[in-house]
Design a protein around this nucleic acid. Structure first.
Lengths: 350, 350
DNA sequence: TTGTATGCGTTATCAT
DNA sequence: ATGATAACGCATACAA
C-alpha cells in the first residue's frame, strides 16, 4: 500500500498523508485522525527503496578501536567492521577507522579528537581505556552523536547499543572446562600476562568468574588455585613465565586472555602434561589448539562485534528501527573437534 | 556515480549506457568498449534503492519443511524462516511455509506438489525424507526454480546453497565431551530413538563420528560402547528405554538427536550418576541442561538455517550477488555455564 | 544503432 | 491547512 493509495482512500492529497506520517506541518485534527486510522488499518509500511532513493543519504561512522599487530585479538573486531562496511556501503554506510594504542591514553585522546573533527553520524567505540573513554562518551553526548560500545561496556553510558561479552560468566565456563580436563582434581595456575598498568576490567572479571566457579563447586577441596601476574614490560617476563609453568604439580593453566599462546609456546617445549584453557581464536591460538597444546578456547565472536555495531547504525539511521540495547554474544567453546567450523574465513556473519 | 554521469563521460545517452550494462540491444562495438572502460574505471555500482524501486519485484519463496509439535526441533528452523521473513519482507521477499509429516512420504509428496502449483521464485527444502526430496529437486531443476537445502545435504543437487551441519564431526565432538565427562574411562551407551523406519542419514553420521572418535583415541581400551535402537512406535518403548538406562555400570549416554530429553526424563528418576550428551537446544533439553541432568548439548544454530536460506535468496534474487555454496554452521557446545547466551529469545541472527 | 520519455514511492518545497 | 510537483537513479518502452 502506497502513500498515494492512502491519500485516495482518505480523500486527501499525498502531501497531507506525508504530513500525518511525519508529524510535520499543519493538518486539521479530523483529517489527521482519518488518515491515521487508514494508516493503521492497512498497516502501512513505507517502501524502503523509494525512501532510500529520495533521501539518498550516506552516513559516516567513525570506529575508534585499538591498533593491532597482525594476528592480535583486535584484528578480528576490525575485520568485522570492514566486512560490515563492504556489505552496507551500498546502503549508504561509510566507515572511517581510527586506531589508538591500547597502552597509551595520549594516543586515545589524540584519535578521539580526530573523530570529533570529522563530525561523524555515529561512533563505534571500544572503551578499553576506560577512564578516557568515559570522558569521550560525554563529549559525544554533548554533540548529540550516537555511539555504540563494543567489547566492553560502560554502565549508563547512554549508548545506542552495547555488543560484547559477559566476561564474568566466561570465566566460570573456563573453570568448568579446565575442571573437566584435569578430571576434577589438581592444581591450577591462573596466569595473567599484562602489557600495562591499566586496570583491565575484562581480565579481572574473567578471573573472578573462574574462581567463583570453584567456590560454588563440589570439587572445591580437590582443587588448588595459584595466581601469577606477569608484566610483559619487565624484560625477564619470559623466564618468569617459564618458571610459573614449571611449578611442580601443575595440572592446568588458565590464561584469561588471547595471550594464551605465549603459555602454549612454553608448554610445547616443556613437554609437561598440563591442560591449558584460554581465550580467542587468533591465528596462533588456533595453531596450538590444533596441535593439542591448548585444550579449549573461549570465544565471543569478536568479528561480530564490529559487524553488529555497524548494522545497528544502519538499522537506526537508515531503517529507523529500534535497536536492542545490550547484545551479549554467545560464549563459544572451541576445541579441536569443532575448530574448523569456527573458521574465520567462513565469515559467518549472518 | 550514476548512469547519467557515465553517459555524459562517454558522450552517449543514458539508454546506451543501460544497453551496455545489461548486454541488451545493439551497441556499436567501439562505443560499447568506451562505456565499458568508464564503467570499469569508476567502478560503477548500481544504486540499490533506485533499482529496487523500479523493479519493485516481490519474490515468493516456498519453504517445504517438517511439521512439528510445540517444543520440537523443527520449530527452531521455522522460527528462523519467520524471522527472516519479517526482516526481509520490506525488501520484497515473501514466504509461504508448507509443512509435511516427517514420517509420511505421502504427505511430503502432497505438499511438494502444492509448492509446484504455487510456482514460487525459490524453494527452501529440508530433505529429511531423502528419497522423495531428491525426486522433488529434479522437478525443481526442470522448472528452473532455484532451491536451497537446509539441515541436511543432497550431494550434487544443483542447489543454490546448502546450510546445515557436519553431522559426522558433531558426533566426534560429542564423543570428546562425553569422554571428558566420564573422566576418560567407562561404559557408554548410544541410544537412538526412532519414530519411523526411514534411514536417517544425520543420525547415522553422528553415531559414526562418535564411534570413530574412540577408534583414534588413546583411551580406546578404557572405553566400552553399547548401542540401543529404540523404536517409539513400539508401545513398550519407554520400558525398553528404562532398561537400557539401568544397565549396570553405565557411565555415560549419548543420544544422537534432540530426543535426548526422553533419556533425561528417565535418568532424573533413576538418580544414577550417568553423564548425558545430546543435541539441540529445544525447550525440554534446555530445562534438563539447567538442572544438570543433561551435561552438554551440541547445537548447530538451527534457527540460522532458515534465516540464511532466505537471506541467500534475497542476495541472489534481489541483490544479484554470488552465494556461498555450502555453509556449515558452527558446532556449538552448550553447557550450564554458557546456556544463557544461547537463549533463543535473543534471536541472535546477525 | 541511438536517444528520449515515463514511472516506480517517497520526501520536500512551493504555491494556493 | 492543503494540494501540486520536482527530484532521487534506474529500467524500459518507444521514437528516431
Amino acid at each position: 500500500m502506497t502513500t498515494k493509495e492512502i491519500a485516495k482512500l482518505a480523500n486527501v492529497s499525498l502531501g497531507t498523508v506525508d504530513r500525518v506520517i511525519h508529524n510535520r506541518g499543519k493538518v486539521a485534527p479530523n483529517t489527521k485522525k482519518r488518515v491515521l486510522e487508514i494508516l493503521e488499518r492497512v498497516n502501512y509500511r513505507p517502501n524502503i527503496y523509494a525512501r532510500g532513493l529520495v533521501l539518498n543519504k550516506s552516513f559516516t561512522i567513525a570506529a575508534l578501536v585499538p591498533a593491532f599487530e597482525p594476528g592480535e585479538y583486535w584484528e578480528i573486531p576490525q575485520q568485522g567492521i570492514r566486512k560490515g562496511t563492504e556489505d552496507l556501503q551500498q546502503f549508504g554506510m561509510q566507515v572511517k577507522i581510527f586506531e589508538f594504542d591500547q597502552n597509551s591514553p595520549e594516543s586515545f585522546i589524540d584519535q578521539a579528537s580526530k573523530v570529533l573533527e570529522l563530525r561523524p553520524d555515529g561512533v563505534i567505540l571500544a572503551p578499553v581505556i576506560n577512564f578516557e573513554a568515559v570522558k569521550f562518551t560525554l563529549k559525544l553526548k554533548d554533540l548529540k552523536i550516537p555511539f555504540t560500545l563494543i567489547d566492553s561496556n560502560i554502565a549508563n553510558s547512554g549508548a545506542l547499543s552495547f555488543i560484547g561479552q559477559d566476561a564474568y560468566q566466561s570465566g566460570k565456563l573456563a573453570a568448568k572446562l579446565l575442571k573437566l580436563e584435569i578430571m576434577g582434581s589438581g592444581a591450577i595456575s591462573i596466569i595473567s600476562l599484562k602489557n600495562n598498568e591499566n586496570h583491565n576490567k575484562t581480565l579481572q572479571k574473567r578471573i573472578e568468574g573462574f574462581k567463583d566457579y570453584f567456590l560454588g563447586s563440589d570439587v572445591l577441596n580437590k582443587i588448588s588455585l595459584r595466581e601469577f601476574d606477569i608484566h610483559q614490560r619487565n624484560k625477564d617476563w619470559k623466564e618468569i613465565l617459564v618458571e610459573a609453568c614449571k611449578l611442580q604439580g601443575t595440572d592446568g593453566i588458565f590464561v584469561p586472555s588471547s595471550k594464551v599462546h605465549y603459555v602454549a609456546e612454553v608448554l610445547k617445549d616443556l613437554k609437561l602434561d598440563i591442560r591449558l584453557v584460554g581465550y580467542d581464536l587468533i591465528e596462533k591460538n588456533r595453531m596450538y589448539l590444533k596441535k593439542g597444546i591448548i585444550n579449549s578456547l573461549i570465544c565471543q565472536q569478536p568479528e561480530k562485534q564490529g559487524y553488529i555495531a555497524l548494522d545497528d547504525f544502519y538499522k537506526a539511521l537508515v531503517l529507523k528501527q529500534m535497536i536492542q540495547k545490550e547484545r551479549y554474544l554467545p560464549l563459544d567453546i572451541v576445541a579441536q573437534e569443532n575448530l574448523d567450523y569456527y573458521d574465520d574465513t567462513l565469515m559467518n556473519y549472518n
